[in-house]
Structures are given as C-alpha cells and as structure tokens.
Simulated scan of single mutants.
Amino acid sequence: MNMIRPKADCDLCPLCKERTNIVLPSGNLESRVVFVGEAPGENEDLMGKPFVGRAGKILDDAFAKAGIDRESVMITNTVKCRPPNNRDPTQEEMSACRPFLDSELESRSLIVGLGKSAIRDIIGYEGPMADIVNKIHTVTIGGNVVNFLPTYHPMACIYRKFAREELMRTISIVKEAML
C-alpha cells in the first residue's frame, strides 16, 4: 500500500501552529482493517501515536476482550494534528488531511469509523449515530469500493452503556471479518 505522509513541516492547515507531533498511523500498516478516529488528543500529540490516551485504553480493552491484537490492525485519525482544546476538527482541517487519509484507506477491506467526526468525514453522514452504528456501508476511495462500519467513539463509552455495548459488537464484527 502506497501511503502518502505529510511533510515534517506540514502547514496545510492552522493545526500546524500548536502541534507537538504529526500523528501518523500505528499498528499493522498493511492490515486489511483500519480504525479511524477524529483527531489526536493531548497524549497522542505528545507521543506521536494515535489512541494512546484514555480513549486508547478503552479501545485496547475492547480489543483484548475480543482477542484481537491491537498491532494486527491499523489505527489512524481523520487529521494528523491535535485541534486546540481537543475540539472537533473543522471541515477545512479534515480537507487538508484528506489526501493522507485516502491513501491510508484505499485497498482496505474494512474501515471502522470511530465517532461522529470520522463518520462525517468519510461518508458525509450527519444524522443520529443510533441509526447507522454497526450497519455496513460502502465508500469509494481511490476508485476502490470499501466496506465502512460506523461506531461510537471510545470516549462515548465512558458514560453510555449502550455505546460500550455497540463498540464491543463492532469489535466482534471486525474479528469475524479478520477470520
């Protein structure tokens, strides 16, 4: 897979002004399955790796319960730099990073969208999460049709039991897809 990367001094959007690190994908970069979050948080910005903070712990726990090795899938975000105060990335910021994301997603068999921003960026959906969670959609990326599975962001699982249950269901669907 031929992924393109932002330059070390990337200044395609205003997020470059406050970042510590550009956060690139982690895990198995050749995996047929990729998880996409919305943006790096503070811990991710400091470490330069996606999902290493509180949301990452929740995701890791879900992987462990399902018997999936985190390193067997690829994990990335719609934008590669942390938005100030952990706000949602803007459309301008997501558009600036979209060529990088598209290069990460083409030729995959399953993309899992973690949360509203990732889902909006990848399939354009802005309605209620409950209407689309764990329902397979297709998206065309780089001329390839890829399955897309929307689910709740791990942080939504902290206070919402139904979101935690749906995230576990998502991980089960992913495990079946990996067999």
Rank of each mutant, 00 (worst) to 15 (best):
A8D: 12
G124F: 01
Y152P: 02
K80E: 12
F63G: 09
N134P: 01
G124R: 00
N77Y: 08
S172A: 15
G67R: 03
G124M: 01
N28D: 14
N43K: 13
V34H: 10
F51R: 08
V79T: 11
A96I: 05
M168E: 15
N43Q: 15
I111T: 04
T20A: 06
V139E: 14
L24H: 11
N2D: 12
K49L: 12
G27W: 06
N144M: 09
G41N: 11
H137K: 15
C10A: 12
S172R: 15
L149K: 03
T78H: 00
C13Q: 03
G67D: 05
K175G: 10
S31W: 07
M3R: 14
D45R: 03
T140Y: 04
L179W: 04
P50V: 04
N28F: 10
L24I: 09
T170A: 13
P128S: 15
P154T: 07
N86F: 06
P25K: 08
F148L: 10
G143E: 11
N2I: 11
N85G: 01
A177R: 12
F148G: 00
N43I: 10
A8F: 06
E166L: 12
G127N: 08
N134C: 06
V174C: 08
V52F: 09
G37M: 05
T90Y: 01
V146I: 15
E44R: 02
P89N: 06
G124T: 02
L59P: 06
V146H: 01
R98W: 13
I75S: 10
E92I: 10
M94K: 04
P14E: 12
A156I: 00
I58T: 14
S72A: 12
G53F: 03
A96V: 05
R54D: 11
Q91P: 00
S31M: 07
C97H: 14
P89F: 02
T20S: 04
K175A: 13
M129R: 15
A39H: 01
D131E: 15
A156E: 14
G124S: 04
P40F: 09
T90I: 02
F100V: 13
D45Q: 09
A130Y: 15
M168F: 08
A55H: 07
V33Q: 08
F100L: 13
D121K: 00
V133N: 07
H137N: 13
L114C: 05
G124P: 02
V79C: 04
S95G: 02
C16G: 01
V146T: 14
S95L: 12
P50Q: 06
S103Y: 07
K65M: 10
S107F: 14
D9R: 03
A8H: 06
Y152L: 04
L101S: 07
V139A: 13
R120G: 00
C16H: 13
R164Q: 13
Y125Q: 02
S172P: 02
K135P: 01
P128Y: 15
C157W: 05
E38D: 14
F51G: 03
P6K: 07
E126C: 02
V133T: 15
V33M: 06
K49Y: 13
E30G: 10
S172I: 03
T76W: 08
C97L: 06
A62M: 09
E92T: 10
I58N: 09
T76S: 12
K135D: 05
E176L: 11
D102N: 12
E166F: 05
N77L: 04
